[in-house]
Nucleic acid binder design. Structure first.
Length: 395
RNA sequence: UGACCUGUGAUGUAAUGGUAGCAUUCAAGACUUUGACUCUUGGUGUAAAGGUUCAAAUCCUUUCAGGUCAU
């Protein structure tokens, strides 16, 4: 009998995952990860992880499977929280949950599971895995969850073949309502529990307060750039090479403090991200202001009026070579190769048509349509049909 | 310190003497396992004091504040 360790989070999805595996005849062990115990920065009610761990325990008892708790908060702090601070400090916007999957759930946690004699690790993610044989080797495909509304493949976009090989996603073929129904039928305590939100393991946080632990506030200017600004209306020049054109399309607009007028003050440029609307505290404009650029060195935030402000849009982005990740290593592009894919630059964004171009220093992703708020530090994930084949950090 | 103009929520602006409205900001909720976006709902105001009038943001007087012209 194959042994599977399920990461029980105390939510309905992992509860049902555990149940399904048991039904399928696996030797199932439930393992709860405790990754955070500092309540001071969370918004939600007291001690969410205590409730979660209790719910996980009750589910395990109900299913009659062994249950354990592991404390990974040290690793979580080193690999996720510190990464967050570093990224924000550099003026980028990290995606901690993508990292959490790569570094914690499917690395630290997986190793613990394997040390318990597990053949597989399972989670409650809404995505699917399929294993095919190609040139005599096993190749694992990471497929979108069947529920289009809950597909979580994006958060797993940094997983490797090695990690996928030892992974099961039992709820990926189900729709969320079906999962809830199974939980209800099995009388699992998590059946009606609200979906988790916010940073996994930490919960909803007030980001500025959270970041203030490490990043000191400092007052700076908020500048408004008019959409009539001349740099938006330059003609696209002729290019000598494709590479030059790609470089042009993916280049950011560069702003200077004299390009617009000062409309307000902020308490630190690194608390803001591109595309952000709330939190600027600047009113009086006919249309809302959106952040179009942050400059953490000069501590200046550039904003533009309205959702359609040209400063918000770009057609292409670049990923440096060491941040290009192929889930499907066998599909990796060689220099000068290109491929048409569907891509997204944030969770739950509809897939957009794009073309990948590999050059010697990295890879360009050129979208058919201009994309709003392409943000450095976030992940772009690309798909062929419903298969996530690769991802990278936006530079 | 001679003459003129303007004062409406946090901000920008509407209202022939007749229910102070809109947008933004802000807040709460919904959505969401990042950060965001989006959606719904909500809050605050006529610079001050008098006067005319059934009725004043609106007309008159004074005060205060800001701005403009000034041989």
């Amino acid at each position: 009998m194959k042994r599977v360790v399920v990461g029980l989070s105390g939510g309905v999805d992992s509860s049902v995952a555990a149940y399904l595996l048991k039904e399928q005849g696996y030797d199932v062990i439930g393992l709860f990860m405790k990754n955070w115990h500092d309540d001071t920065v969370t918004i939600s009610d007291e001690c969410p992880w205590l409730d979660d761990s209790n719910d996980a325990l009750l589910v395990a008892e109900k299913l009659g499977i062994p249950f354990q708790t592991v404390d990974l908060s040290e690793e979580y702090k080193e690999r996720i929280v510190d990464y967050m601070f570093n990224e924000y400090e550099r003026g980028r916007t990290p995606n901690p949950d993508v990292l959490c999957n790569r570094e914690i759930k499917f690395d630290v946690f997986m190793k613990i599971a394997l040390s318990l004699g597990a053949d597989y690790v399972a989670t409650g993610h809404y995505c699917r895995k399929e294993t095919i044989h190609k040139e005599g080797k096993e190749v694992h495909r990471l497929l979108a969850g069947k529920d289009p509304n809950k597909d979580q493949s994006y958060f797993l976009c940094q997983l490797s073949q090695e990690q996928l090989a030892k992974t099961l996603f039992p709820v990926g073929e189900l729709l969320k309502p079906e999962v809830r129904e199974i939980a209800a039928n099995q009388d699992l305590i998590t059946a009606d529990k609200k979906d988790s939100q916010g940073l996994c393991f930490i919960g909803k946080v007030r980001l500025p307060e959270f970041l203030q632990q490490k990043l000191q506030p400092k007052q700076g200017k908020i500048i408004e750039i008019l959409s009539s600004e001349e740099k938006y209306h330059q003609l696209v020049p002729d290019f000598d090479s494709k590479k030059e054109k790609l470089e042009f399309l993916s280049s950011k607009y560069k702003y200077d403090i004299n390009d617009g007028k000062v409309v307000g003050q902020h308490q630190g440029a690194h608390y803001y991200t591109k595309g952000q609307r709330k939190g600027l505290a600047v009113g009086g404009t006919p249309e809302p202001l959106f952040v179009i650029e942050t400059d953490v060195d000069a501590n200046v935030i550039y904003t533009g009026q309205g959702k359609n402000h040209p400063g918000l849009y770009r057609k292409a982005l670049f990923i440096t070579n060491d941040e290009v990740h192929w889930v499907r290593e066998d599909l990796r592009l060689q220099v000068d190769q290109e491929i048409e894919v569907m891509a997204r630059i944030r969770y739950r964004q509809p897939l957009e048509k794009a073309t990948l171009y590999q050059v010697d220093s990295g890879m360009y992703v050129v979208f058919e349509n201009n994309q709003s708020a392409i943000t450095e530090g976030q992940f772009v994930a690309w798909y062929l049909d419903s298969e996530l084949v690769g991802s990278g950090v936006i530079s």
